[in-house]
Design a protein around this nucleic acid. Sequence first.
DNA 1: TTTAGGG
DNA 2: CCCTAAA
Length: 690
Amino acid sequence: MVLLKRLDYGFNGYQVPPTPRAARSARRRCEFRRKDYVQKMCAFDLLATVAGKLLLEGRCSPKSVDTSSDKEQTEVVESSDRKGKNVENKPLEEKSFEQDSCERNFLFTEIVSQAPNSNFHAHKLARGQNDACSRPASVITSESSEKFGSAEPMFNNDCKLRLGIFPHPVDVESSICRSEGETKKQIKIETPNNRNLAINNLADTCNVGRSDTWDRKPSTLVSSPDCQKFPFCRDQILCGSFPVKQDGVKLVTKDDDENYSGCTKPSTTNKAFRPPPHVGDCRTRKLLPSKYWKPTPNSKDKDPYDPHAERRNYLNRNNSYKRKRSQRDYPFKKRKFFDCSSVSNSDEGISSDGISSVPEYGYGGGALGSGPSLTTVPMAPTSLRGERASFQSRNSHVKLKIKSFRVPELFIEVPESATIGSLKRTVMEAVTAILGGGLHVGVLLQGKKIRDDNKTLLQTGISHDNKKLDSLGFTLEPTPTQSPLCLEDCSFELPCDTPQPLARYPPMPNVGQISHPHCNLDTQSNPRGTNLCNFFESDRDSALFPPNMSLEKTTTDSKALVSVRPMKAEALAMVPMRKSKQSESAQRRIRRPFTVSEVEALVQAVEKLGTGRWRDVKLRAFDNAKHRTYVDLKDKWKTLVHTARISPQQRRGEPVPQELLDRVLTAHAFWSQQQVKQQLKSQSETCLLL
DNA sequence: TTTAGGG
DNA sequence: CCCTAAA
């Protein structure tokens, strides 16, 4: 349950608020509940059944693959911050970042291209990433992406903040070359200090040696500001995309957020709670960023327990509310139309996921149905073609091009006053937290997880002649080991010689989309649960891109091209994943426990407005917390009342100060009574009329 | 769209 | 948190 725990508390720190729209879907995807788990498992059982059928239909076992002709390809990586400014130590506010336009997802793109050998150990990678901690992360401001922005309409102005991981400027070249030995590759790496560092002589085979290399020099991490390089589909965006090549990883954060300026001044006050009456305003005003306070025209507001005054006030404001209401965009209700599945939307003919197959004959970017950028794919040099040719003649091999891996979603929140350096560290921590925990590879076929590791590709339906198979996807996920929900083996290895390279997939389809608490920065000054920013932050989930916009980009992502050696299967031309209709079903929003600060704000609002006016409460105290709907607030109040009534021993979760609970009971009693009075009143009136 | 409640 | 009947 460790994982769950982390989830539960992952939101207490600073986080980058996402855009409202995607919020909902993201939350749903992230939801990690036992209940869901059970449901999922049912689905898996179903899959197992299907798989069984496939097994029966299975034909001869795959033949061995001749890799002799396989040569690694050269990949040129776009230099990252060519135009990026080195703004290491300036506060974020001084940058041109626009919080609401930050890209929030992380894209890990591989640098190196062809990794013929699938003998890749995920845990090695993970370790390597740990090492990456020492590596500098780079931040590129919006300017740096200008040139790309124009070419990439999808990002429009949303490409403001990008994070990248760079290898240490120092010994990138040497270490790599040394460890890799001779090579046929050339990699251009741009580091903050060292641009366009060309690396030659990379080993053209990645075997154990490569793994070792990872240990030492985990990866040549290069970041590219070019959005086109990372055309992610909505899914990728939602989940975080992780185009990975064995040789390198690129990290890019995308964030599409809303303002969270409220976090600029993390409040440290949290303890001093005062009695209900009148305290509210003064105190709150102090604690809360002014922008979140809607000055109430009526001074009557001052008296929370004057229902009449409040009523009048309420009525007076009713009109303006209506106007606001129409303007307001509540994310909820949209959920059903939101496709959260990472493997979705391929139906539209768009490569939605990180993977796409390489056409069996004559590799051509266009064959993938991808966008224009595909042509720029650095892959497919002559060696590759040769390889393909050999495959065709000798065996039936499945050729896959993994554009990207889905990666667990990261939530990062930092105060505006944070320095770029701290931002980098934060991102680094977040990334390493995930990677360091070990990675698990999941295989998706037509949007469904393939659990049986022992099936051959053929049996699974992954073969070139299987027309039904049009989608195959891979995901990187945090090691579910710690989670009780984790099923059997969670091997990190991706056996290359095993006929059944299919890795087990964690029970939860979207396990990877958890938020990682480690992302929190600046915890020293902002003890967990005490920052008031939490409920003012805009919806993190909103960081997810609107479904529509991301779809087109996907096609362009040719960078993460990797030649995966499909052990013993037939060469196969695959098509981008197709989303299964089932997956489109709504997903639960991620759980976001209320912080003490939020509770306090809620209590205050209810004290003033009373129960039964949740929309007003929302507007008043949570107007900027897009992820808190009035229903949420109502529910929270309900649970608060319940919590206040039970013994402290029975309470769970983050403890709510007794003082607050007392206020809850008081307010609840007051307003309940008020309600009763109102009813009696109306009743008597009715009687009089009669 | 909001409320109010059950799940 | 979700889902929904009602308003």
